[in-house]
Simulated assay, not measured.
Amino acid sequence: MEEHLLRCIDESQTIENLIVLRQKGLDDYRSTITDRWMSHSEFKQLGEFHRHLYKRVIEITLQELEIEGKIPKKFKPFSFVLLGSGGREELTSASDQDHMMIIQGTDEMDEEEELFYAHFTQRIAVSMVQIGLPLCEGNVLATNRKWRLLEGELRLQLDEWFYDHDWKQVRNFIILYDMNSVYGDVEIVDRIRQYIYRKLEQSPFFLKRIFENMKKNEVPLTPFGKIMISMYGPHQGSISVKQGMYLPLVKSIRLISIGEQIHANSTLSRIQHLVDQGFWDENTGNYWSFTFLKIMTLRYGMPIRFAMKDGDHLPYSHLAAREQGEIKEILRSLKDLQKEAESYVKHKLGERR
């Protein structure tokens, strides 16, 4: 990703211009990986690309609100936070929006502040849709008051999630755990992170609930090693790269990282920290990093030899033997990773009994 493109994003004055720049960036990127897997540096540049886009949308929105006279004279500092794949800096051309706003303090907001933050986040979400990121179907959005919270409100919410252990609460925690501030007061997010780390230390068995969430994304392999493909419908003969490959890897790495008290956001950073801390040797870390980059390349619909029409459905039944072999090797290794994560949790909780 050229530095020139990032400068163009940072200097853009309109959302319309950002729409053009996002499409250009994605097209240019795809053209470089038509016949190979992406590199670590290329993947990092993609993360920066999406981060710059989000940041500039927020800046333009604030400028427009100021011109319109819709910014109150006094409002609390805030942090606009990306969640999920955005928080991990793993957005793709097919990603949707997952974000929240954390507002400084514990005192209740007055009506003017409430209206400002509601209108502000609505404008951001609409602009991101125009750029090409649809709204999250689960409504994990800063436009939703449940994801637009004061620091004090979020701490109380975390207390409830850790106490309840309901699967929905665990899912919400996992969504929040990958948070990454893209604009505003970073210290707000840092304080919430420290609160989360303390809660995890106090609630070791919460790790088991996170493991149960991980198991919801099983690798599509039978006990006999046969690949389970879609048998009917428009994606007949295909497997989902997101559900069957990407999420099993991301969730397994995150689970082990939480257990090892690794405070990193991206999957690649978590893998590197596991190596640095001696959990894995360098060869194992390199293997998982490269496997992750292969999966992310597939999520961009490349390399072209895999004949993907989108960033998810891999037409396994129609692939040549060589490509089928590559995919099967990835799936088998992911199955082993999930087993390793399961053994890790059992061992970790056994130590604490």
Rank of each mutant, 00 (worst) to 15 (best):
M1T: 07
M1I: 09
M1E: 07
M1H: 09
L6C: 11
R7N: 12
C8E: 15
S12W: 01
Q13G: 14
I19R: 12
V20W: 03
L21H: 00
K24I: 08
K24W: 02
G25L: 04
D28F: 04
I33Y: 06
M38Y: 02
H40A: 10
H40E: 14
F43H: 14
F43M: 10
E48C: 07
H50W: 14
L53I: 15
L53P: 06
E59I: 10
L62E: 08
E66T: 08
G69D: 05
I71Q: 04
P72A: 11
P72E: 11
F75N: 05
K76M: 06
S79A: 15
S79H: 02
L83I: 01
L91D: 02
T92G: 14
S93M: 13
Q97C: 05
M100G: 01
M101G: 00
I102P: 00
Q104W: 05
Q104E: 14
G105I: 04
D107G: 01
D110M: 08
H119T: 14
F120D: 07
I124H: 01
S127T: 00
M128R: 01
V129E: 15
Q130A: 12
Q130M: 10
I131C: 06
G132P: 03
L133P: 02
L135F: 07
G138R: 04
G138S: 12
N139K: 15
N139H: 12
T143F: 07
T143H: 07
R145K: 14
L149R: 15
L149V: 12
L149Q: 15
E153H: 07
L154I: 09
Q157G: 00
W161N: 02
Y163C: 08
D166Q: 13
K168W: 08
K168P: 02
K168N: 11
V170C: 05
R171F: 10
L176E: 03
L176C: 03
D178F: 03
V182N: 02
Y183S: 05
G184A: 13
E187H: 12
D190E: 15
R191Q: 15
I196Q: 08
Y197D: 15
S203D: 14
K208G: 08
K208M: 09
F211M: 13
K216R: 15
S230F: 11
M231K: 15
S238Y: 06
I239E: 05
S240C: 10
S240I: 09
S240M: 09
V241E: 03
V241M: 09
K242D: 03
K242A: 04
M245G: 01
M245P: 06
P248M: 08
V250N: 06
K251H: 15
K251G: 00
L255P: 00
I258M: 09
I262V: 13
S266P: 05
T267C: 09
L268A: 11
R270H: 05
I271Q: 05
Q277W: 03
Q277V: 04
W280E: 02
E282S: 14
G285S: 13
W288L: 12
T291G: 02
L293F: 05
I295S: 04
L298M: 10
G301R: 01
K309I: 08
K309M: 09
K309G: 11
H313T: 00
S317I: 13
H318N: 13
H318L: 15
A320V: 09
A321P: 00
R322K: 14
I327Q: 01
R332I: 13
R332W: 07
S333N: 13
S333G: 05
L334C: 08
L334K: 04
K335V: 06
D336V: 12
K339P: 04
K339L: 14
E342C: 03
S343Q: 14
K348Y: 15
E351T: 00
